[in-house]
């Protein structure tokens, strides 16, 4: 028993150390948001809090941060919801609806290969495509491309979780006369909630932070947060303080999402389903 206690203590020690390493730079970024550029450049540890960075970020004419923030919220939410839905459906289809085995293999391999392409080389063809149908500078185009970019990880992760659903649960539901949509709604989606929560957070964050595609497929009004922040990393002046302020505000939705999603990444979800 003493062994276990020491083990616990050791785990806590490692976790605390890890947390410290993670959090120090974040705290430093938070401080940077309240420093003047010169205090930041000189690495002053003692400084008078300064709100100019937030003023420039939120109220200056050159910045569209508030509008861009809303763009990001819309694009990331919609594209995440679409990825989760499409990916779970596809994973279920591939592994539980008796496709010949080369179908899932091909889809998975294809999506991995697609995921390997640096997004920067995709931007050109996408721009030409959307411009020709007049969809450049629209949210629709950006949402669709973000779905495409994040679908590989969605399908791969959701496949793992879908395959973990005990086949017996499904069979008994089939015997009870459940149709495929009922099965999806009542069995599949509830059982893969931890996977949905984890994938959802990742996809949301990837979409929220995506830069190269967002830059080229948006205009000033539809631009997203990373584009807004990147404007402060200028050729002749990197406004670190304003960038830090922008970053600090930009992680709020993800942190909220994370706290909300925590409830879904809990143990024993499978236990309650009669397993």
């Amino acid at each position: 028993m003493a062994n276990v206690r020491w083990g616990r203590l050791g785990m806590h020690a490692v976790l605390a150390l890890g947390a410290l390493v993670v959090i120090l730079p974040v705290v430093w970024i938070a401080f940077a948001a309240f420093k003047t550029q010169i205090a930041l450049l000189r690495g002053d540890l003692v400084f008078t809090p300064y709100l100019g960075n937030f003023e420039e970020l939120l109220f200056s004419k050159a910045s569209d941060y508030p509008a861009n923030f809303l763009s990001s919220a819309w694009v990331a939410s919609v594209s995440t919801a679409m990825v989760l839905l499409i990916a779970t459906l596809a994973a279920y289809s591939m592994y539980r609806l008796r496709w010949p085995s080369w179908v899932p293999a091909l889809v998975l391999m294809g999506s991995l290969v697609f995921h390997m392409i640096p997004p920067i080389t995709l931007v050109g063809p996408w721009y030409v495509m959307f411009r020709s149908i007049g969809w450049d500078s629209t949210y629709t185009a950006l949402v669709l491309t973000h779905v495409a970019l994040n679908l590989p990880i969605g399908i791969a992760v959701m496949s793992v979780f879908v395959r973990d659903i005990p086949i017996e649960i499904e069979e008994s539901a089939r015997l009870d006369g459940s149709s495929t949509p009922q099965m999806l709604w009542h069995i599949v989606f509830p059982l893969v909630r931890p996977g949905l929560a984890a994938t959802g957070i990742l996809v949301f964050v990837f979409s929220w932070n995506e830069f190269a595609v967002a830059l080229n497929l948006t205009s000033r009004q539809t631009a997203t947060v990373p584009v807004a922040i990147a404007k402060f990393a200028q050729e002749y002046e990197i406004k670190n303080g304003v960038m830090a302020a922008g970053a600090l505000l930009s992680i709020i939705p993800a942190v909220l999402l994370l706290l909300f999603a925590q409830r879904h990444i809990v143990k024993g979800l499978t236990a309650g389903t009669g397993k």
């Binding site: 050159a62 931007v123 050109g124 721009y127 030409v128 411009r131 830059l215 080229n216 205009s219 000033r220 584009v227 990147a230 404007k231 990393a233 200028q234 050729e235």
Partner: peptide, 15 residues
């Protein structure tokens, strides 16, 4: 005014 990061402005003009 369509304002962009420096390199991004070049990319958008090219597109």
């Amino acid at each position: 005014l369509d304002v962009n990061p420096f390199a991004g402005s070049g990319e958008k003009q090219r597109n």
